[in-house]
């Protein structure tokens, strides 16, 4: 009998992602947020989470995926990081799933760029693949400095 882990799952541009359930503080609906001029592109804004100011990161932009369809409101997955709570904006929330460790595999070598950096591993579920995000890296500032500065005018 192998060990299993619980993951909180969500969807992003049709992809199925998961983060360790213990890393997730809470999931909340879309909040009004304050944008931060001059900030790295991946930062969508700041939200007020019961008196705490939480940075919201647009995961689509973080993962360099196409932008969300207009009018589609993202959800906040608030994760705990070394630097306090950070919200990840995702398309849709999935279930919390418990998965056996033996279906886990390292991401294939063909992954490149930001995906290789942030996707820690893959669970081969029956019907689809669950991509596990490294939350600490995800909430970090992109390594390439150039990416941080390209702000739309």
């Amino acid at each position: 009998m192998s060990d299993s882990k619980q993951y909180s799952t969500f969807y992003l541009n049709g992809l199925f992602f998961g983060v360790e359930v213990l890393k997730v503080q809470e999931v909340i609906r879309y909040q009004e947020m304050t944008r931060v001029p001059l900030a790295p592109r991946m930062i969508e804004g700041l939200i007020n989470l019961r008196g705490q100011i939480v940075t919201a990161i647009d995961l689509r932009r973080r993962l360099e995926l196409p932008p969300r369809a207009e009018g589609q409101l993202p959800m906040n997955v608030v994760v705990r990081s070394e630097d306090g709570a950070v919200s990840l904006l995702v398309d849709e929330i999935g279930d919390v799933v418990e998965i056996q460790d033996d279906t886990y595999e390292r991401p294939p070598e063909t992954l490149d760029g930001v995906a290789r950096e942030l996707i820690q591993g893959v669970y081969k579920l029956k019907e689809r693949l669950l991509l596990i995000l490294d939350t600490e890296k995800t909430v970090g500032v992109p390594t390439s400095a150039a990416r941080a500065s390209d702000i739309g005018n």
Partner: peptide, 27 residues
């Protein structure tokens, strides 16, 4: 005054953020 997350440390134009009377965040 509330500090900004590390993701925003590179933005030198802001010293922090605060929550306004209406509950929204202001830089």
């Amino acid at each position: 005054v509330k500090p900004l997350g590390k993701q925003l440390k590179s933005v030198s134009s802001f010293a922090g953020a605060t929550i306004m009377g209406d509950g929204r965040v202001a830089l």
